[in-house]
Amino acid sequence: MAHQITSDKPNKLRSAFNLFRFREKKRRDKREKQFVGAIITPLILYMAFWTLLPLIFGIALAFFEYSARRAGGPILGFGGDNPFVGLQHFKNMLDFSPNAPLEVRQFHSGFKITILFALLVVPLNLLITLPLAFMIESVHKKLKGIFRTIFFLPVLAPSVGVAIMWGFIYHPQRGLLNAIIGLFAGKLIGINWTGNPNLVVAGIPVALFAVIIAYIWQDLGYNLVIFIAALQAIPQSLKDAAKIDGASDWKTFLHVIIPLMMPTILLTVVLTTISAFQVFDIIQVMTDGGPADQTKVLLLSIYDYAFRYQRMGWAAAISFVLFLLIFSVSLIQTKLLRSEWEY
């Protein structure tokens, strides 16, 4: 190398330049490394502080009887008058005897209501959004945007506002729903849609249906825009081919569109289920869990026990169960995402 440099002038220049480039590149690499390190290290540590620490803290809480009002032990208030109770909270959860404590019976009913809520919300949501997306996709271009905006609008409203708006619809005396039914029945109707524990249809409280309708009204825009995007991704040639083969619209929808959209549908089922498990706002504002705890889903119990009754250990134990519920559904999601789908 050194020999070449002295023997050949242009080569010497090039080598010098290459050496310069090499040094320059090394300098740049070092600078890039410094840049990456300077950003990644603090931000990831920060993120870990606000995710891992609460996660560990939260799981630990489930093994204590804990109140923020008591001083407790030296480390984050654990110990002392916030005593370690081991698996006691989880053991209590398995007490199915009729004279189990109120909190345990509330947990059992909350668990059932949360699952029931999701089981009703998910199919109802899909039964509305799938045909709706298909219909909106099929109308004239100018109308398409208007219809999509109208059905999407509630997604953008605060869920608290949605709950208050639906409260005006369901009001027993001044509500729109009773007024409309009264118009057809020809007499005054005073059904208490969200406050009468004795109103039960097919074993399901009417109040639960009432909050589910408000919830779906707000939530359906999500799946709607996802389905519209998925419909637009289906090649027109496939739809045309079905048409030329003489398939009716209904048959095309059922035998061509739906199978092609299956991966998207499965994914929305999972996402809708997970968010249904975490319902809080609409129910808390509309019924606060009532009447007679008929709409008290798990997250409402968690909030009540943690922040109203200061029983954070018990609330954390319920949170852990809810987490397991959501986690098992998430696992299905990652399984679905892993499989490859092609048109």
Binding site: W50, T51, G58, M312, F327
Partner: peptide, 20 residues
């Protein structure tokens, strides 16, 4: 790790988050 934090539901970190 970043993807995994998306799996932690907010209600599990809600109570400890408040305490922190």
């Amino acid at each position: 790790f970043i993807l995994a934090t998306m799996m932690i539901p907010s209600q599990l970190t809600m109570i400890p988050g408040y305490l922190i």
